[in-house]
Computed example of a mutant assay.
Amino acid sequence: MGLKADYRPLVYLGLAIAVVSIVIAIVLKYLLPFAVGMLIALMIDPIVNRIELKLKISRGIVVILVLSAIFSALGYLIILAISRLTFELGKLINILPSYTDFLSAILSDIGSFMFSIYDIIPKTVLDYLLKNWGQIISYLTGFLSNFYTFLVEKLGLIPNILVFLIFTFLSSYFFAKDKKRIMISIRKILPHNFYKKLENIQLELLISFVGLIKAQITLVMISTLITIAGFYILKVDYALTLGIICGVLDVLPIFGPSIIFIPWAVFSAIVGNIKFAIALIALYLVVVGCRQVLQAKVIGTHLGLDPIVALISIYVGIKIFGFLGLFIGPLVVVIVRAVIQSGLIPPLVNRT
């Protein structure tokens, strides 16, 4: 019996991780607008309380004003980013074919450059590139065209995005407006001890969620500063503005700043500015590399996790949930830690 008792905390821990992961997966698939609405309600609660006490107006009106400001700014930025990206890609695709003649004119210069590095690149590769240059341009144009078509098709998701935003807005409104009534109802349903433990978990999760946001902001700021510095070194026009844009894009899943760097580098290479294209790719690799190196350390510091634990949680999260695992992995660890600290499951080590 004693041997089984020693393994009981590990069993509880495994069950807690499994249950939390399953719950998060269900929430992401079916209840995401309500989960996001609850988080928004918790985050704006201090602001709503302060305005309500200072201006002496209805809490519902204050919540509507705060949420309207947040969602209006967010919606404007999203629509602006999508519209601008679609316009720039369309413009790039339209002008690419016109550069075919120009590329033929500078082909000899590119060939000379390639043969100058003959010792590095095999002759068969160089011959293939020279003979199939037109096909390479056609493939590149087709790739960008397909990517552009993909983005345009994704614009068809706008109705779904609008539905998501509407339900998120409504849920955050009701959670923020009726917070006290909801908490009183929960308190009446649950036993006092269990409710107190849930309060502790709620506080821990709120602190951890804020820490996760701070960690992402820190990573974005680091990426932005590196990008701006790199653009100034490369003497790029509007280095500050472009650096800020690339830094903000760093929070986007899958694409990130690559939607700026990669097309720009490809276009520079096509028009013959090979050195600048290589420099852009090098800068992009530096930005991505620094983020990957610092990610576990920064997230671990802001969430109070050991860097190796944060790194493992990020890796496993990405393997299970994809890109979202970058956030979900550490979140699972934080939730399980909060559950253990609340006393809902026994700790792994008995300190008595």
Rank of each mutant, 00 (worst) to 15 (best):
residue 59 R to I: 05
residue 104 S to C: 11
residue 143 F to S: 09
residue 122 P to V: 08
residue 229 A to V: 13
residue 150 F to N: 09
residue 205 L to W: 00
residue 295 Q to K: 12
residue 30 Y to A: 11
residue 142 G to C: 09
residue 116 S to R: 08
residue 313 S to H: 05
residue 352 T to E: 13
residue 53 L to H: 07
residue 82 I to C: 03
residue 251 V to A: 14
residue 334 V to E: 03
residue 207 I to E: 08
residue 266 V to W: 05
residue 278 I to A: 13
residue 209 F to T: 13
residue 105 A to K: 12
residue 260 I to H: 04
residue 173 Y to F: 13
residue 65 L to G: 08
residue 260 I to Y: 05
residue 264 W to D: 01
residue 99 Y to D: 06
residue 32 L to M: 04
residue 340 I to T: 12
residue 223 S to A: 12
residue 72 S to T: 12
residue 117 I to E: 12
residue 199 E to C: 10
residue 318 I to R: 03
residue 48 V to Q: 00
residue 245 I to T: 14
residue 156 G to K: 12
residue 67 L to Y: 03
residue 74 L to F: 08
residue 120 I to G: 07
residue 317 G to M: 01
residue 293 V to F: 10
residue 82 I to E: 10
residue 195 Y to F: 14
residue 52 E to Q: 11
residue 20 V to L: 02
residue 173 Y to D: 03
residue 175 F to G: 04
residue 75 G to M: 10
residue 339 V to H: 03
residue 67 L to P: 02
residue 244 I to N: 03
residue 307 P to I: 03
residue 273 N to S: 08
residue 118 Y to L: 10
residue 275 K to Q: 13
residue 291 R to N: 15
residue 81 A to C: 10
residue 169 F to C: 03
residue 98 S to R: 14
residue 307 P to H: 00
residue 202 Q to M: 13
residue 81 A to S: 13
residue 215 A to Y: 02
residue 212 L to D: 06
residue 24 I to P: 00
residue 166 I to F: 05
residue 84 R to L: 10
residue 78 I to G: 00
residue 263 P to C: 03
residue 219 L to Y: 00
residue 115 F to W: 07
residue 154 K to P: 05
residue 80 L to C: 08
residue 173 Y to S: 02
residue 45 D to K: 02
residue 7 Y to Q: 13
residue 155 L to H: 08
residue 306 D to P: 01
residue 251 V to W: 07
residue 180 K to P: 04
residue 238 Y to R: 14
residue 124 T to G: 15
residue 128 Y to G: 12
residue 38 M to A: 10
residue 284 Y to M: 07
residue 34 F to R: 02
residue 218 T to N: 07
residue 273 N to Y: 09
residue 290 C to P: 13
residue 52 E to Y: 03
residue 133 W to E: 09
residue 171 S to T: 04
residue 98 S to V: 06
residue 158 I to Q: 07
residue 60 G to P: 05
residue 32 L to Y: 07
residue 346 P to D: 04
residue 77 L to I: 07
residue 111 G to P: 05
residue 43 M to Q: 09
residue 79 I to R: 01
residue 17 I to E: 01
residue 110 I to G: 02
residue 222 I to F: 11
residue 285 L to S: 03
residue 351 R to E: 15
residue 265 A to P: 00
residue 321 F to M: 11
residue 118 Y to A: 15
residue 229 A to K: 04
residue 71 F to K: 01
residue 290 C to T: 13
residue 286 V to H: 04
residue 216 Q to T: 06
residue 112 S to D: 14
residue 339 V to G: 03
residue 168 T to L: 00
residue 189 I to S: 11
residue 196 K to P: 05
residue 182 I to Y: 09
residue 93 I to M: 01
residue 52 E to G: 02
residue 192 H to A: 13
residue 74 L to T: 10
residue 305 L to S: 02
residue 150 F to G: 09
residue 48 V to W: 01
